[in-house]
Design a protein around this nucleic acid. Structure first.
Lengths: 110, 110
DNA sequence: TTGACGTACTACGGTACGCGTAGTACGTTC
DNA sequence: GAACGTACTACGCGTACCGTAGTACGTCAA
């Protein structure tokens, strides 16, 4: 089980990388995150909705109304050019962070 | 340069892993963090002092007064058995987080 | 003897983001 | 017509890192 603290700061990265493959909607994104993490992390609805709104506000994604299989129509999100660029920066930063943290824990058995 | 957002949640891990080697004091810890990160990250004094107090409150480290080369006497921090255990858990969680995030960014060039 | 410098802290408010809880709303199906 | 699944919104909380600022103490040079 991965705690929210550990994942903090990487929700945007997860969402953008999923939207990089194809447009999607919040509910599906949540299911994909659950699946990709091997069910180790279940994102909260509020967290995800806040995240996509934040991304939209930053022009990293755009939204459009799409059909729904049942119930209310869905809001689909699509990554923008800005979003792709931002994703690449985040990935670069992630690689840096990884190597730095790894340098600290060298020799620590887990 | 690594942002505070990227490092967030891993200050405790960094501090504990340094204290695992030997007892140290806040000022030195800050310098070591700066050095180990290859000067990519400079922790703020407030962040570090807050962190060691938090760790002490959680009984993951203990403190004792030691001599100073000059000026005020230093407060040395030493890792406890609880701290070692906590560190190992954090390291395990870090490995999980790494593999999960990496799964998302597969295929994203940085 | 004073005042600049390095070291060792403390105080306090700001901000971001993920969470908890709760509620609304709509369409299909039984 | 009500239960169920899907699709959201509202609101406030806690944690942790940051920014700015100030205090305090000892040494050393002028």
């Amino acid at each position: 089980m991965i705690s929210a603290d550990a994942i903090r700061g990487y929700v945007d990265l997860m969402v953008l990388s999923l939207l990089r493959e194809r447009p999607s909607y919040a509910y599906e994104l949540a299911q994909q995150i659950h699946a990709v993490t091997g069910t180790e992390y279940t994102i909260k609805q509020t967290t995800l909705y806040t995240a996509v709104k934040r991304l939209e506000g930053a022009s990293l994604v755009t939204s459009y109304a799409g059909a729904s299989a049942s119930g209310k129509p869905r809001t689909y999100y699509q990554i923008t050019a800005n979003g792709l660029e931002h994703l690449e920066q985040k990935v670069a930063e992630w690689r840096d962070t990884k190597s730095v943290v790894d340098r600290f824990i060298e020799g620590v058995e887990a």
